[in-house]
Simulated scan of single mutants.
Amino acid sequence: MGKRSKKQDERNVNDPFRNLPNDLNVEILMKLPPKSIVRLRFASKHLSSIILEKEFTKLYMARSSTQPRHLISVLRGGSNMQMQRFHSFSQDHPSDSNLDEVSYKLDPNLPYVFTPSVRGLICGRDGTKMIVGNPSTGQFVSLPTVESRRQDILSAFGYDPVNDVYKVLCMTVVTKPSNMSRGGDVVAWEDIMSEEHQVITLGAKQEWRMVECKYPHRPYSGYQEICRDGVMYYLASYKQKRSLMSFNLSSEDFNVIKLPEDKMLQQFGFLTNHTGKITIVSQAYSITIDLWVLEDANKEVWSKAAVVFPPVAVYGRLHRVFFAFRGILGTGEMIFSPYTFAPRTTPNPFLFIGYDPKSKKVGETVMNGIGDESDTIQVFFDHVESCVIL
């Protein structure tokens, strides 16, 4: 056994938090942002023991869930380094005054693309390299390299409430020859399907494991998945039709949910949360947005609602910029943010347009200092701050 240093003994004896009631220590920690909690973990051994308890993590998560935030990922590239910055700010009272920033230095050769925030954590992937981190604390850990001979991989990140663990699903896409009959002739063409399905559970002995999928499908790249109640949902092509795939994180079973027979829905749309339900948002060449809400996954029951958004020309003071639909908040407010036609161009200052379909009110949020024209930006909504230590 190694000897305890004199400095460690002095820190334990002089720890002022040891003399306070435990309930008061918890109350103090609950009022602090995650960055401060992480620092206190190293400053006080007594507080560290509280911070690492699962009960405190759950208590902090319950409080944060009532105060959702916007999370903005900003990737700044350079010849010698890449700096990943995460900005978060209150959705209820957005302003520069409550802007919180955490920075993380990335491998210059790995431009990670991140999944939506799940219970405060996010997952980034570049090829077979993956990281999971807490953007509220700036702590990130590398996952084992995805074992695959192919580089075309799609991934999804979620939380399993049954076993209280986070999991990552990776699907390797392979192109297979197939046949299609056309006008009496047999035409050779190629099916792009997910072949290898691997799962990793975050923890001490994390390693990739193969899982079986009985439904040959092609996940759509560039579309974000949704994790809700321990189930991952993502859009894919199944039997030549656009479908909604689900993956139960506890049982690790796949399932297919048919989409309504709607021509536009088969061509356009992406997943979002709406009124606590999985929803596909479809918008094509008009200002009308169709919301297809999954009412019952087992019975494949959907409902449809249409929302008309005011012409974005009203906000045309930014040159060559229009506002694209980004998501729906828990309050039902629809969020739009700038999208430029020029590649790798970010408007500065950064804007959000919020539209409430019930009251028909439109609000604008301006964020200064978020990024410049060379930055790559991702925006996530209903982010919950977490004090989880990885």
Rank of each mutant, 00 (worst) to 15 (best):
N298E: 15
V281I: 15
R317L: 07
I226Y: 00
L249F: 03
L249W: 00
R228D: 09
L318G: 01
V307K: 03
D290R: 12
M264W: 07
K241S: 13
E225L: 05
E261W: 02
T272R: 02
T279F: 08
K263L: 11
L265C: 14
W302L: 08
H274I: 00
S243A: 15
E225C: 12
W292F: 14
G316F: 01
A236F: 08
L249A: 03
K241R: 12
L291Q: 08
L244G: 01
A236P: 07
P310T: 07
S243N: 03
Y234G: 09
G276R: 07
D253M: 11
Q266M: 11
T279N: 02
D253Y: 06
Y234E: 01
S237W: 05
E225I: 01
M232Q: 12
E252K: 09
Q267R: 15
M245R: 01
V256A: 01
V293M: 09
S282L: 00
R228I: 15
K258N: 14
S251F: 03
N248F: 02
V314W: 04
F268H: 14
L265A: 13
N273Y: 05
W292A: 03
R242T: 13
G276Y: 08
E300K: 07
D290Q: 11
V256G: 04
V256Q: 04
R242P: 00
K299Q: 14
D262C: 11
S243V: 13
M264T: 06
S246L: 07
A297I: 12
D262F: 03
Q283P: 00
Y238K: 08
D253Q: 12
L249Q: 01
A284S: 15
M245E: 03
G316I: 00
S237Y: 06
K304M: 13
F247V: 01
K263T: 13
D262I: 12
Q283A: 11
V308G: 00
E225D: 11
P310M: 07
I287T: 09
K258W: 06
E300V: 10
K277W: 00
Q266D: 11
F309R: 12
S237F: 06
D253F: 09
K304C: 11
S286L: 06
V281T: 12
G269A: 08
S282I: 06
V231F: 02
V314L: 09
I287R: 09
P311H: 13
M245H: 05
K277Y: 03
E225M: 10
